[in-house]
Amino acid sequence: MSAPAAPGRLRPPAFPANWPARLAWAGLVIYTIYATSVLDVTLARFIAGLGNAGHFLSRMFPPNMAPDKLALIYTGMVESLQIAVLATFAGVLLSLPLGLAAARNLAPVAVYGPARAFIAICRSFHPVIVAILFVKAVGFGALAGVLALIVATMGFVAKLFAEVVEEMNPKQVEAVRATAAPFLNVLIMAVFPQVMARFVGLTVYQFDSNLRNSTMVGIVGGGGIGAPLFTAYQRFDYDVVLTILIIIVALIMLCELVSGRVRRIFQ
């Protein structure tokens, strides 16, 4: 490229072919074909499945509204909600100091290194897997679910909170530091005002997410609606499954509505 342009040289085309991009696209297509064949995902199975789907759906409708089932579902659903509330509360409380400790601009290396590593471990396992371990440690029941979701909350809220803190304006902090404010007062009057709105946003988002997952930890014995759901599924009581699904989706949508409100109050 360093050679001077010869007089007769052609100009480069206005839209040069982007060979790396083309190769990447081709690779993606080849991978898709390969992976589909490896996984034995065939059109025949897919079409056969569509037949099953009709059968499946017909067994689902109408949803089962028997009072004894509804009572069972109510108990499970309330427990799921409680798991989500407790896990969010405790998890967020722990995430606040953890997130500050994991922020490069506030904490010394000796603090933020371990904090980051701890957060990374919290993040790497799906809540259901963490629930398996807690069921073994503290026994079947809601407590295992709560503990599993606390871990998930720390993995998400503390990580993103640390990033928010790292993005804040350092000049505002410097100015408050210059007033001779001790560290805690700097946090309260210079750091928190900049990051609290985002923290509340993360919290309500995580509550929604915890609610979704609290319906799942029951599959491995972590309490909540998951156990009745899985039992009904294994007994082919698909009409009960549908009732539970409708209630879960309704509750989650309701919570998203409420959390939108909360976010507006704290912005």
Binding site: L39, D40, V41, R45, F46, A48, G49, L50, N52, A53, F56, L229, F230, Y233, Y238, V241
Partner: peptide, 12 residues
């Protein structure tokens, strides 16, 4: 859960 009921157990 839903797709296992439809397509049977497996990667699909």
């Amino acid at each position: 859960l839903l797709f296992v009921a439809i397509f049977g157990p497996g990667a699909l």
